[in-house]
């Protein structure tokens, strides 16, 4: 079943077209990795799914609900992890998770259960009660993943979530995504990391000047193939 769906999705800024009629369907258990140069329209796509910006044309649907009409309701199903997960620096990781989780309408969750979720997301036990001010980027990204797990999101929207992470952090993050994918979460991730895209993704899409110019299944593809196709598309 289609969890994330874009139909003829367009976005223009004062005449400049950032996205030309995107059609995309992502099912439960799929990871779609969006590749493309800076300015290709990846962030624009993700923000349209989040309802942070309004489409100029076409529709975005989450679990069959039109984002334009059911803005708040569609958010129940999704979790968002930007390049930098931003949290309240004065609160601990646990307090941040508790706050955002309750905001998402999950009600009160036992703190022990939330600790378990943070541990599952890979946050070291000694960091859980420290103020987020003292966290590294990798630790904040893990809290972001924990937020998605605790919320029980059926779709994940990720915008270059591993940029700037060291290889180990990046590897841990990818493993978490695989776990979520295997639980049936639909994932849309913008990334520049071809290697991780091939590892984690079930499909990759190459975006250029606001158009999806290629969409490939990863199981038929080697790393070398992916890199070659990507670079071919980048030539003008």
């Amino acid at each position: 079943m289609a969890v994330l769906e874009a139909v003829g999705l367009r976005k223009a800024y004062d005449g400049f077209v950032a996205l030309h009629g995107l059609d995309l369907v992502i099912e439960a258990g799929e990871v779609f990795c969006l590749l493309g140069a800076n300015g290709a329209g990846k962030t624009t796509t993700i923000q349209l799914f989040l309802g942070f910006i309004e489409p100029t044309g076409g529709t975005v649907r989450i679990q069959g609900l039109d984002v334009a009409q059911h803005g708040l309701e569609t958010k129940r199903h999704i979790a968002y992890i930007p390049e930098n997960v931003m949290l309240y620096p004065g609160l601990s990781g646990l307090e941040n998770l508790e706050f955002f989780n309750q905001l998402a309408g999950k009600g009160r969750v036992d703190r022990a259960a939330l600790r378990a979720v943070l541990a599952e997301a890979g946050l070291q036990a000694e960091a859980i009660d420290r103020p987020v001010r003292t966290y590294s980027k990798g630790m904040r990204q893990k809290v972001g993943v924990a937020m998605a797990i605790a919320k029980g999101a059926s779709a994940l929207l990720l915008d270059e979530p591993t940029s700037g992470l060291d290889p180990k952090g990046s590897n841990e993050f990818s493993r978490l995504l695989v776990t979520l994918r295997d639980r049936g979460v639909a994932i849309l991730m913008a990334t520049h990391d071809l290697f991780r895209a091939k590892e984690v993704g079930t499909r990759v899409g190459i975006m250029k000047h606001g158009r999806l110019v290629a969409s490939l299944a990863t199981d038929e593809l080697s790393h070398a193939d992916l890199e070659r196709i990507y670079l071919e598309h980048m030539h003008d």
Partner: peptide, 14 residues
């Protein structure tokens, strides 16, 4: 400025 507003908005809070 801290970026938490987007995080808040993504939770669906009004």
């Amino acid at each position: 400025e801290r970026g938490t507003l987007r995080q808040l908005a993504s939770t669906g809070v009004s």
